[in-house]
């Protein structure tokens, strides 16, 4: 084994094309939909959410949904201070789909519902999504760093081994595909140790299982759609939208759609995020702080960082494009396209 970490092509290109270091904390991509809240969480009482340090107040009145820059009781008084994100109206475009409220972040003139990502395993109207599948967690890092953590596979063996397995397997192959707006990571693992949580409460008695895990990441809004399928076992489809709260924090209203898994796994598995999240935060918090430091020491990479480096590269390209004033979606981008085949869903 070489002592020098090997860098993949994306890593080399990322290093070559960027004059700056990877600075995830400053990425502020716009003209995209953010799933800012579960639909079921919003009633007549205004709830405050944040996107890129900007207030989004959500409430319903007379059955109608509102997403505004200001609290409803202060809206009229403060409307003069409304930003260009609402064209000065104070109200963001907002749509309900897949059990979420999606708020538009960007130029309201460019809003299109077709830009909401397709989530094939969730009912579009959100009906029938059990509350036990929905868990909100908070990460102590900017969204891109949190997403990179999700893309990164090798950390799990060390940080989450007690919850999701020790990473031992016969074969472990990772593929990465991308467009200008998405990164897709496909992991095929044969004969891996069955995750403790699946063995204890998931009814999988075998010692080994195969895994095909697809993670589909939308770059602008950090919506991560995941379809891990275990054999023997079952798929545990999930959505993890990393809503950027600011440069230091992100919020994830997860949907772990375990409805087809056996009980009690289906009820308890979504709660595993309360175990995983503190483990991730223990590294993300100091890591995020260090990305504020100007340094000549670039991050090193191994071949295992291929998906993460691809993500970095594409995020930088997108950010640089937006910095040049180009906020459009490329010909290869269609967020609403059916990704059932991409995820490898059964049936």
């Amino acid at each position: 084994m070489s002592e020098v970490p090997m860098m993949d092509a994306a890593g080399r290109e990322a290093e070559a094309t960027s004059k700056r270091d990877w600075v995830p904390v400053n990425l502020d991509l716009r003209d995209t939909w953010f799933p800012v809240a579960y639909s079921a969480d919003i009633g007549e009482r205004a709830v405050r959410r944040i996107v890129h340090a900007q207030d989004v107040y959500l409430w319903r009145d007379g059955g109608r949904l509102y997403a505004a820059e200001f609290r409803p009781d202060r809206l009229e008084a403060m409307r003069a201070g409304a930003s260009a994100f609402t064209n000065g109206s104070g109200f963001y475009p907002a749509v309900e789909r897949y059990g979420y409220i999606w708020a538009w972040y960007g130029n309201p003139d460019n809003v299109h519902e077709e830009l909401i990502p397709n989530i094939p395993f969730l009912p579009p109207d959100g009906q029938g999504i059990p509350r036990y599948t929905q868990r909100a967690v908070r990460f102590d890092a900017a969204s891109p760093l949190s997403v990179e953590n999700l893309i990164d596979l090798t950390h799990a063996d060390f940080l989450h081994a007690n919850a999701i397995g020790d990473g031992q397997s016969e074969n472990d192959v990772v593929e990465v595909h991308s467009t200008s707006e998405t990164v897709t990571r496909i992991r095929n693992v044969t004969r891996k140790s069955v995750a403790p949580v699946m063995r204890w409460i998931g009814g999988v008695r075998a010692q080994y299982q195969d895994l095909r895990a697809v993670l589909h990441v939308h770059l602008r809004n950090n919506v991560c759609i995941s379809y891990p399928n275990f054999t023997p076992g079952y798929p545990i489809p999930n959505v993890q939208p990393f809503v950027p709260v600011g440069k230091h924090r992100s919020r994830v209203d997860q949907t772990n759609y375990t409805v087809h898994a056996p009980a009690p796994f289906r009820w308890l598995m979504p709660r595993i995020s309360y175990v995983i999240q503190p483990q991730d935060n223990s590294v993300l918090r100091p890591q995020n702080a260090r990305y504020f430091e100007s340094t000549e020491r670039r991050d090193l990479s191994s071949r295992f960082d291929g998906p993460g480096n691809r993500y970095r590269l594409l995020m930088m390209r997108l950010a640089e494009r937006q910095q040049r004033g180009d906020f459009g979606y490329g010909a290869d981008a269609d967020p609403s396209a059916d990704i059932s085949a991409v995820l490898g869903m059964r049936g």
Partner: peptide, 30 residues
């Protein structure tokens, strides 16, 4: 961790006028 206080340190060295509440969209894309 040093987090929001970074903005205070930056603001201390910033001699420009205080930031406006209303920021054009184009300027927010950084």
């Amino acid at each position: 961790e040093v987090a929001p206080s970074r903005d205070r340190r930056l603001a201390k060295t910033d001699t420009r006028m205080p930031a406006e509440r209303v920021v054009p969209v184009q300027e927010r894309c950084a």
